[in-house]
Design a protein around this nucleic acid. Structure first.
Length: 743
DNA sequence: ATGTTTATTATTTTT
DNA sequence: TAATAAACAT
């Protein structure tokens, strides 16, 4: 089999360039994944490199899984010897293996964002920082940023520039102490600690540098300093570092990603081969050209010449909606039409938006018209309360010093351990500089008469009894864990802690919650393959670094609702981008910073380039945002899409009512304009002459009779201010939406 | 210890 | 506006 077959010249070059540093700039839809897969296969099959000597790093589990599956198809079982995973998963593994040299206990717990916040709140109490003046969120972000820049508290101290940094430093120092005491690491630690370890420990560094002869990093534009340094260290032995990415798709600067890492690659690696993948296999010419025009406006970029052999395709549909409900209905109608008339499946369609809040009216419209959809990343499995509770028990069994998880479930289900007692216990533990679990152990000892001299926490006899019972519960669970599979342990925990009964009793959705917990058990059963003594640890690690239980699972045919960020790396035949408005996309928070504005533009570009055949850019004239209505001008990005590539269909309002396919019974279907797609580009929409004048008497279906006060143009529509009779009062109505008739 | 009221906050969130 | 968390009262 010829591994180079079917590759274009640039792709082939990227596969064959196996010696020395290589930078692959991969435009959207340019076959990037294919190149990575073929390159690995080429290294193994043609160059005779042992898979064991190759490391490939991704950002997402999704990407790692896809790579693994595709490499497996070419190489078979030898994929197992590859090191292939996310930055975090690979680092966690290294840290467990090298725990001694890293100064860690190998059973460390990995804290997710919620755990982090929880810990940080306790930190603020310790340090007397007022959470109202300095939000835990902002401090968390600052600490995370420091770690991404590889700054320890001591190093951060030397760079601090203002009072905020001063506060951050205080929080950071204490936060680190608490993490250490809990034998826990946060996500950023995973990377930072590995970098520190490799930099500071010759044996460990040489071990990994001599092992890995070929290093491959995906989505390099999204690396932060810590990840960049990690890549550098890993490739330090061979200099065979291949990085793949696209600066135009860098959308995570707010998480310390530094595009400079990819832009300056040639400087950092003199003699690096630079290969550009510019042929696009995904989109129509129209879509490619439109998106290229949008991204070309950015100043901080290197030009690329994307091209495609694909068809010209359909023009891009640019539509104005009246408000977010209208926008949603319009999208739903069009998806309905496409599935009926254009032979599309729902799963061909994706609706993308800037902020999660925008998903709501969309969801409502899908529900109302009974069209199937799914929301990506809405309720992440491992973030559900009941799942986190059970996991907290498991984590505690694995690492009893984990204060965050202990505090989470110490009184769930309630065991008579109130906030008072807990505060007192925590205060005492803090004073003694011990984790809470250790404090519980000391409590038991101070029962001994000879230990009475020590001043223990001031607890009531009742509280003391409850706390002791809790410690015994945890100890007995830890004992039970030794001779059980993880699935059995989940079962055991549910019973012994009373959590099952608690779930069923507490809530009317208890059954559903229990289902979720049992799903966790099912996941554990799938992992039963490991039966070494650290099965629990491995299980916990495998889920600490993923957000969804089964996002690989097949879904029934349904449309996708997704944020633009999450859409990166995906593609759909039909894409709707909604909220194409100033203040939404670009987001208002980017207005005063040109760099952020460029990132918004890249985000728009990412969205547009997800589309294979049909692209719709939709904006709403008005939008409800955080309680207030706003009227937003069209997004500046719309103006950068050449007019010759777009159609703006006329929307016939009141008279053209297409009945939605499956209206939910019991609901009145709202009258709505139908989207009419002409293939002939419509001239710019101009509103018809005003149908009403001030003084006209009018009738509204719901509000009754009234008199027009004013009637003016509002975007492509007319807005009338009407004084209605009775208590209804004065209303402002958009005429395409509100059925008004003259009397 | 649990329901009720008030307060807070709202950009994106690969791990 | 509306969802969620903390504070509060019962």
């Amino acid at each position: 089999m010829d591994l180079l077959q079917g590759l274009n010249p640039a792709q082939r070059q990227a596969v064959e360039a196996v010696d020395g540093p290589v930078l692959v700039i991969a435009g959207p839809g340019s076959g990037k994944t294919r190149v990575i897969v073929q390159r690995i296969a080429y290294l193994v099959k043609t160059c005779g490199v042992r898979p064991y000597r190759i490391i490939a790093v991704t950002f997402t589990n999704r990407a790692a899984r896809e790579l693994r599956e595709r490499v497996h198809r070419l190489l078979g079982q030898s994929v197992q010897d590859l090191t292939l995973g996310t930055f975090h998963a690979i680092c966690a593994r290294i840290l467990r293996i090298e725990a001694d040299d890293a100064g860690l206990d190998s059973s460390f717990t990995i804290y997710d964002a919620a755990d982090q916040t929880s810990l940080l709140k306790r930190t603020l109490e310790d340090t007397g920082i007022d959470p109202k003046r300095f939000s835990p969120g902002a401090l968390k972000h600052a600490i995370s940023a420091a770690k991404a820049r590889l700054l320890t508290p001591a190093e951060f101290a030397t760079t601090r520039a203002n009072y905020f940094d001063e506060v951050v430093l205080r929080a950071y120092e204490r936060y680190e102490e608490r993490l250490r005491q809990s034998n826990a690491l946060d996500f950023d630690d995973l990377i930072m600690k590995v970098v520190r370890l490799l930099e500071g420990n010759d044996r460990v560094r040489e071990k990994y540098q001599s092992r890995y002869v070929h290093v491959l990093i995906d989505e390099f534009q999204d690396t932060n300093l810590a990840q960049y340094r990690l890549a550098r260290l890993l490739a330090g032995g061979s200099r065979n570092l291949c990085v793949v990415g696209d600066p135009d798709q860098s959308i995570y600067a707010w998480r310390q990603a530094d595009v400079g890492n990819i832009l300056n690659f040639e400087k950092d690696y003199p003699g690096a081969q630079v290969i550009k993948l510019e042929q696009n296999y995904r989109s129509t010419q129209t879509i490619l050209e439109a998106s290229s025009e949008v991204i070309a406006v950015n100043r901080e970029r290197k030009a690329k010449e994307l091209w495609t052999e694909n068809q010209q395709g359909l023009p891009i549909t640019v539509v104005d909606a009246l408000n977010e409900q209208d926008e949603a209905l319009l999208v739903v109608h069009e998806i309905d039409r496409l599935t009926k008339e254009a032979g599309r499946r729902f799963s061909d369609c994706a609706v993308m938006y800037r902020t999660n809040a925008q998903s709501r009216p969309l969801e409502e419209a899908f529900v109302r018209y009974g069209l199937p959809y799914h929301l990506v990343g809405a309720t992440r499995f491992y973030e559900r309360r009941e799942v986190k509770d059970v996991l907290a028990y498991l984590r505690l069994i694995n690492n009893p010093f984990d204060d965050v998880n202990l505090l989470r479930i110490v009184n769930v289900p309630s065991r008579g351990i109130g906030q008072r007692s807990l505060d007192e216990l925590a205060r005492w533990a803090t004073g003694e500089s011990v984790p809470i679990y250790t404090a519980l152990q000391l409590l038991a000892q101070s029962d001994d008469p000879d230990e009475q001299s020590r001043s223990g926490p001031e607890l009531t006899a009742r509280a003391l009894r409850s706390l002791t019972a809790f410690r015994e519960l945890i100890d007995s669970l830890a004992e039970a864990a030794k001779q059980r599979t993880v699935a059995e342990l989940v079962e055991h925990v549910l019973t012994q802690t009373g959590y099952r009964d608690h779930l069923l009793a507490s809530d009317d959705r208890g059954e559903e919650r229990l289902e979720n917990v049992l799903e966790l058990r099912t996941v554990a059963e799938g992992q039963a393959l490991f039966d070494d003594e650290n099965a629990l640890g491995e299980f916990l690690e495998s889920i600490a670094l993923v957000s969804d239980a089964d996002d690989a699972g097949e879904r029934p045919d349904s449309a996708t609702l997704i944020t633009l960020h999450q859409a990166k790396g995906l593609e759909f035949p039909v894409v709707f981008i909604v909220g194409m408005e100033e203040g939404v996309l670009p987001h208002i928070r980017s207005f005063d910073d040109p760099a952020q504005m460029e990132e918004e533009r890249r985000l728009c570009y990412v969205g547009m380039t997800r589309a294979r055949e049909r692209l719709y850019l939709v904006r709403a004239y008005r939008r409800a945002a955080m309680g207030t209505r706003t009227t937003n001008p069209p997004s500046r990005f719309l103006a950068d899409v050449p007019k010759r590539l777009t159609v703006s269909p006329s929307r016939r309002g009141r008279d053209a009512v297409s009945t939605p396919s499956r209206p939910e019974s019991g609901r009145t279907a709202t009258r709505v304009g139908t989207l009419v797609l002409d293939q002939t580009p419509a001239p710019d929409l101009k509103p018809a002459p005003a149908p009403f004048q001030a003084g006209d008497r009018v009738r509204h279906e719901i509000f009754g009779d009234g008199i027009v006060v004013t009637c003016g143009v509002n975007g492509v529509d007319h807005e009338a201010t009407v004084a209605f009779r009775g208590d209804v009062g004065v209303k402002r109505l958009l005429l395409a939406y509100a059925p008004l008739e003259k009397v």
